[in-house]
Design a protein around this nucleic acid. Structure first.
Lengths: 296, 296
DNA sequence: CGAATAGTGTCTATGAGACAATATATC
DNA sequence: GATATATTGTCTCATAGACACTATTCG
């Protein structure tokens, strides 16, 4: 191979290359931003009515005008999709440094009535203290919704050659103005000697724009998996200093089940470092504040 | 909201919507296809010189003419990116049913000299028995490369506010015709109270087209994580019937360390079912053949 | 002091890892 | 029968879960 002439040839090729000869999809980033907030006026320390919240944007324009979508937007030339995600997050929440984790690509035909638009989904966890409410506008209005998910029994079928299982999830979002969104999604896993496929189908959709109910489900399942593995990423839902009971509450809310305090504290020990500060406010014995230990 | 008139409005909106008013990236799927093969003439049963192989395509046209790229291609309108991946896999390996798992999106600016082209990467595992060699052509030539990876010590820095760690990987691919590809990639993880970022940089690249060395690294790391968790997906590297020693060899090759037989068998017990068949050929006591148990 | 919340000690069952022992077909 | 390979048994240690216990502050 003559590298010199090849280099020149390549230059020539690139000069003549016309990417637009082929149709191309538009690319968006959609972000499921979770946070954890206390209800107004709740001052109990032990059992604060903390709720898992999801940020949604009410669409001011078509399509799906008036319905609720995840924050997000189109990827621009000269930026990577991760940059799109953090730019959009910053624009819509004013949070400039946030935990962002890719969830997957959504590219099913017909997912956007405007045409061929694919989306890279992200999961984001933010400390509500960092969030600054953005003034609403005609174009969009942001709101935090209480997030709840119901999961039904898994039904399994299996023979010697293959196995398949099915389950359905119901996502429920509600906010103060009694606005309720809900969606039912069926998950199907099939597995044989050659391959494994997971498919998802939106059976019912009330109030969600696009396929965002599905994106939310996948993002939450990812979050829950992290919680199951006791991953320290859930720390991002809390401020820098926190009590171990607050931390435990976070995991309990995401996992939707109570945990045993002694065991939880042992498991988190490698990730936290105690400070000399204590929580203040009404109540009985004040709890020590901890922060994440980065030296572990 | 007047739903009837809104519906009509939306229709009008969609009729006038011109997606092409904004530039859009081309979208490709790139697939890291791993397989496991014995060297010719190797008939030992206990210690077959099995090697982890990666399928690469030599580029027949510009750009990167003559260099080696992952199999893959452009996403077409009316297909999802997963469909692109399985179509391309079928075209290039003749394997129509294969394990495919998304690895992530690659969208860094400048990753493709032809312009704004983003890629969704996939990991695929196939049983070599299913693979049918495709005749090479001017446009492309496919070849299996022995896959090897070297990993250096992790270097960590941490203080009270943040932690960062760095390590480098060296990927080495070689095939019978003494063609050697190699690349060195630096991985950087940074973690503070607000976020966590992982960045990768190709320090050295010999023979790989595009950023495919990086895609290969990420796909392999995903595969290795599955092996560490004793996930049964590695079964897809083997034929339907296999001995437990063969299975163990698969995990040992991916993990690059020996495993203890008794423990390995116990761990795999839930996923396998014994058959009445035994392996044939030269050697001593023949081993029982197992298959995957789907009823577990 | 009593109540409430914070935080720890300890028993047990389970599973991972190391290694020894047994089983069985071929040479 | 010796040998190589296949397969199983068992000991130890680490960890997860359950639950009882102690500690500390406020009312």
């Amino acid at each position: 191979m003559n590298s010199g002439s090849s280099k020149k040839e390549e230059k020539e090729f690139l000069k003549n290359y016309d990417r637009s000869a082929w149709p191309a999809p538009s690319l968006t980033a959609d972000i499921a931003v979770f946070s954890l907030m206390q209800e107004e006026g709740d001052t109990y320390r032990r059992d604060p009515e903390n709720k898992l919240k999801l940020l949604m944007i009410q669409r001011g324009g078509h399509p799906y005008k008036g319905l609720w979508a995840l924050p997000g937007g189109f990827c621009r030339e000269n930026e990577s999709i991760d940059e799109t995600a953090s730019r959009e997050l910053k624009e819509e929440t004013n949070v400039s440094e946030a935990y962002l984790e890719p969830v997957g690509m959504f590219s099913e035909r017909g997912r956007d009535p405007r045409g061929w638009i694919v989306s890279q989904a992200f999961l984001s966890l933010i400390d509500p203290a960092d969030y600054r409410l953005h003034a609403g506008s005609d174009a969009w209005k942001a709101a935090w919704f209480d997030f709840r998910i119901e999961e039904n029994e898994e039904s399994k079928k299996a023979d010697a050659q293959a196995a398949s299982s099915e389950r359905t999830y119901r996502i429920l979002l509600e906010n103060k103005e009694e606005c309720v969104l809900s969606a039912v999604i069926r998950e199907n896993c099939r597995c044989d000697a050659r391959k494994e496929t997971h498919s998802y189908q939106i059976l019912n959709n009330e109030g969600f724009a696009f396929d965002h109910a599905l994106i939310i489900l996948k993002a939450f399942l990812k979050l829950r998996r992290e919680a199951e593995l006791s991953s320290p990423v859930l720390f991002y839902l809390l401020p820098e200093h926190f009590t171990l009971n607050q931390l435990q509450k976070v995991y309990e809310i995401v996992l939707n089940r109570p945990l045993l305090t002694a065991n939880f504290r042992r498991k988190m020990q490698p990730f936290v470092r105690e400070t000399e500060k204590y929580i203040t406010g009404p109540g009985h014995r004040p709890a020590r504040l901890f922060c994440r230990d980065f030296e572990s």
